[in-house]
Write a protein that binds this DNA or RNA. Structure first.
Length: 153
DNA sequence: GCCAACGTTGGC
DNA sequence: GCCAACGTTGGC
């Protein structure tokens, strides 16, 4: 089982939204590296849900992958903000995965705290200029984060 | 609102 | 294949 981290702007889609909906397709990813990571996801993988571009950027909850990568229909919809004219039915460019809500942390694990943790040096999320919205959480870093996240569930 | 970092596009 | 221009992300 792999661990991933996915970013979302809470104004657009928050962990509370996921809790209410229980299951949701994670669409709108328009970055090749992020898409490729989604294609590596397996059913049951754990996703750390991160709030970005907000007052307190933080890991706020967890979800599991309930449906592996499949074409993201918003790329074909001219009315969608995620419309991509380069994506055709024959050659879909973009994928989505479906997530199922798992937990909201009692205490969000803030970016500030993560940055203050010397053991997390090298963790892509806390690197300057890191903009990737989907990233793997390597075993090494998960080992460090795990206790804190599982006990706050 | 600012700006640094990064990805993508398109001209050459 | 290079690189400048541009758009976007996201912390602060």
């Amino acid at each position: 089982m792999a661990i991933w981290l996915m970013k979302s702007e809470p104004d657009a889609f928050s962990i509370n939204d996921l809790k209410h909906r229980q299951r949701e397709s994670w669409d709108g990813v328009r970055n090749f590296q992020a898409r490729n990571y989604m294609r590596d996801m397996k059913q049951g993988d754990v996703v750390l849900f991160y709030h970005s571009s907000c007052k307190v950027p933080a890991i706020v909850g967890t979800a599991t992958v309930s449906k592996t990568a499949h074409p993201d229909p918003s790329c074909w919809d001219p009315k969608s903000p995620y419309y991509d004219p380069k994506s055709t039915a024959e050659t879909p460019r973009w994928d989505q995965v479906e997530l199922t809500f798992e937990s909201i942390l009692k205490k969000p694990l803030t970016l500030a705290v993560l940055k203050s943790w010397p053991e997390l040096d090298g963790f892509p999320l806390i690197q300057k200029g890191s903009r990737l919205s989907v990233m793997p959480v390597e075993e090494h870093y998960w080992h460090i984060l795990k206790s804190r996240i599982l006990c706050e569930k």
